[in-house]
Design a protein around this nucleic acid. Structure first.
Lengths: 241, 241
DNA sequence: CAGTCAACTCGAACACTGTGCGAGTGGTTC
DNA sequence: GAACCACTCGCACAGTGTTCGAGTTGACTG
């Protein structure tokens, strides 16, 4: 049940010597991410990963303690794909926007990360580097002490939350036929049944004709809208204190 | 690979007659949630659920198509715990705050939901009821059309994102010994190693002395801070358009 | 050159998992 | 009595993560 942080991956160097012994932590990680990106977490099993690498499944356990740990490494790898601009290059608003948008798209490129974020805190080196960049970006903007932490959490939460619902929508579309129109048709009886019980929701849905719009564009706009409101709120706080 | 929405749980009535045949969808759902709350998703297996209900594991498949579907039902059940005030009872700001706080605490009461939110969209009756209430709350506040959707997504994302990182922290604390101080001690060598590479982050961490604070209070404050900024941003948008 | 040790690989086995299938049970309706 | 339906469930299958202990390699030491 309990596990010491002292045993964590981040404290244990990759087990490999100068030579290249046909298997390395990096290599395993890369192969694992390929499977995850292509087929989601359900597609990743140690045996499959082993055969993909041309080695026995249990060989992996020399380089990685656990499947869980492997996933932790993978999550941090995704964190490494997020770019946070240096201060001075732009205003803090633009900097935060770049960061937030980059985070959203990284999460959507690797949607399996989303389901893992709530299970372990992300403490890997890439996450740390991210933290450093964020401090560097927000400090000159005027955020200090706890406000810095809170502001950063706010942006983080926006990216994670938006990516979560967006990923859910994506998998629903992927899993049903292909066309959004088809899915809308399939849902019609259900939606109509509920329309009676939820008149306001239904009226709104008809007003905006939500099912006949470009879903991706809607999601993009929604994220941008939220981000803008959130930046306004932060800016207001800066000027008022 | 593909599955028609026509087969979805939400279109299929619970399979039970007037009599009470020792097993019902409701009952299964309740037992499943007890296990999930107590031991997380890893603790839930169909066999365990069966024995907990005093019946064979495969009997469950009469009432529920598969485990995924059972989890979908469970997620919607949690959505039912979220309260959105009616408009007129309070200002929209307070209404949204109640909703957001309720959502955060529901997700933290049932942290296993967080990992599932990204896998299926939540379309159950409770989620729909939530949607209705949100429309009723935000419309009189001045949000119409797409802005309503975007504002609602923003609040949603904040709750989900904050709960995600908070759940991650909680499991880390639960899983290591017991005391936060112990965990801080265990992390020390790692943190110190990284301090050199991340001076700004390190300086900030020392300035606020983050490890010696009440973590729960910090999380609460962070959520409230973010929510306030976000509401300010929305209010500003309302007045400017 | 032989010997030792560490780094690394891997097959077998264990205790599990979700789920399809077909047989079985009990009550209600002709 | 017969037929039907709602429902339960044991068996079996193909898979899972992981442990253990034996095996293989290559480099360094005596």
């Amino acid at each position: 049940m309990t596990s010491k942080f002292a045993d964590s991956v981040w404290l244990r160097p990759p087990r490999t010597r100068n030579g290249q012994p046909t298997l390395s932590r990096e290599q395993i990680l890369r192969a694992a991410m390929e499977i995850l990106d292509a087929e989601g977490p359900a597609g990743l099993s140690m045996r499959r990963l082993g055969t993909k690498l041309g080695s026995g499944a249990t060989s992996l356990y020399w380089h990685v303690a656990n499947k869980d740990e492997l996933l932790e490494l993978a999550v941090d790898e995704v964190m490494g794909e997020i770019y946070v601009p240096e201060p001075g290059d732009t205003s803090w608003r633009v900097g935060v926007s770049v960061w937030a948008n980059g985070m959203r798209s990284a999460l959507l490129r690797h949607p399996w990360v989303i389901g893992l974020l709530g299970t372990h805190p992300t403490l890997g080196p890439n996450a740390m580097r991210l933290g450093e960049r964020i401090v560097l970006l927000l400090t000159p903007a005027g955020f200090t002490g706890m406000a810095l932490s809170h502001a950063s959490s706010l942006v983080n939460a926006h990216a994670i939350g938006a990516a979560t619902t967006e990923a859910a929508a994506n998998t629903a579309i992927k899993r049903s036929g292909v066309e959004m129109a088809d899915l809308a048709d399939q849902m019609r009886p259900y939606v109509e049944r509920l329309a009676a019980e939820h008149p306001a929701y239904d009226k709104w849905r008809q007003d905006v004709d939500i099912l006949n719009r470009d879903q991706q564009q809607l999601l993009d706009e929604g994220f941008a809208f939220g981000l803008e409101r959130l930046l306004d709120g932060l800016e207001l706080w800066l000027t008022k204190s």
